[in-house]
Amino acid sequence: MARPTYSFEFFPPKSLEASFRLWDTIHALAPLDPAFVSVTYGAGGTTRELTHEAVTTIGKTTGLRVAAHLTCVNATRDETLAIARGYADAGVTDIVALRGDMPGGAPFEAHPGGFANSVELVEALHATGDFTLHVGAYPDRHPDATTDSSDVEHLKRKVDAGAKTAITQFFFDTETYFRFRDRCVAAGIDAPIIPGILPIENWKGVRKFAASCGTPIPAELDTAFAEAERDSSSDELSKRLATEMCETLIAGGVEHLHFYTLNKPHLTRDVIASLGLAPRSALDHVA
């Protein structure tokens, strides 16, 4: 079995301090030789310019393969495709095409003249012939899904429209991922379903985010992190949980892992080291 590959997700900085943190994270993780890195898009397209700047700068200064997030929110079709052309002109070959979220958690509403959903966005981007397209996937039911099968059906439409891989929302139970992958295969989806891994930097923050997006929260994690916080071992617990999750996924045939870094490198770096996936020279460089 080939050694699994991995990728990292960053978000664009909104302040000078955040900019320094992003570049510290990139410099810490770039030596690990990821297959690609991605840069997110704020709710409502609020970081559109910042995302573009981060994507192009990372590509130019590090040589990493960078995937730019692009959404349907708050832009016409022409405006969205103009952004995509700008990426193509800058040498960006990968886009993570998403519906996107409205500001303030409001229900999604298509922009007049814009893309109604991610399937339409994927179709239009695929027609340009400029990009390898990645899309989102939801092992736990998406809050907007109307039935238990909706997430798989929608993913099938995105893959049929031209998506090459799907990156999942984070999850806490590997069986959730495996059941979802089995359902995708049964539905005729042949694109790789890449698990999204979230090393837990802050349990209260992750718990709040999970609740907002409908991800079930195991009660035992509340207990484990409460105990870990009392004896200042939260990082050790997080590292162990993420490493064990990745080991189980790899044993189950997963060939690529996508890490949500939250622009903080140390847990992601430590998990990859624990898995024995990083080049030795890279570990020497970032130690």
Rank of each mutant, 00 (worst) to 15 (best):
T174A: 05
E244D: 09
T62L: 11
P218Q: 08
H285E: 08
V39N: 04
H27S: 14
V39D: 00
A18H: 03
F11V: 01
S274P: 00
A278F: 01
V119E: 15
G105Y: 04
D101R: 14
V286D: 04
A210E: 01
H266L: 07
A219W: 08
E79N: 15
A166N: 10
E53C: 12
R99M: 09
A191G: 08
G188K: 14
D130R: 02
R240K: 11
S150D: 11
G188Q: 12
A35L: 03
T93N: 03
L198Y: 06
T261N: 10
Q169L: 05
K204D: 05
W203L: 02
T93W: 00
E49G: 06
N117H: 04
E17F: 04
L198N: 07
V271I: 06
A282S: 10
V122A: 13
V271E: 01
C213P: 06
V39I: 08
H27C: 09
S281L: 10
F20H: 13
M1F: 02
G136S: 08
C246H: 01
T51E: 08
T128E: 12
D173W: 02
I95N: 14
D151E: 14
E120G: 11
E9D: 10
K204R: 05
H126P: 07
T61I: 09
A82V: 11
D140R: 01
V185Y: 11
A67C: 13
L277D: 00
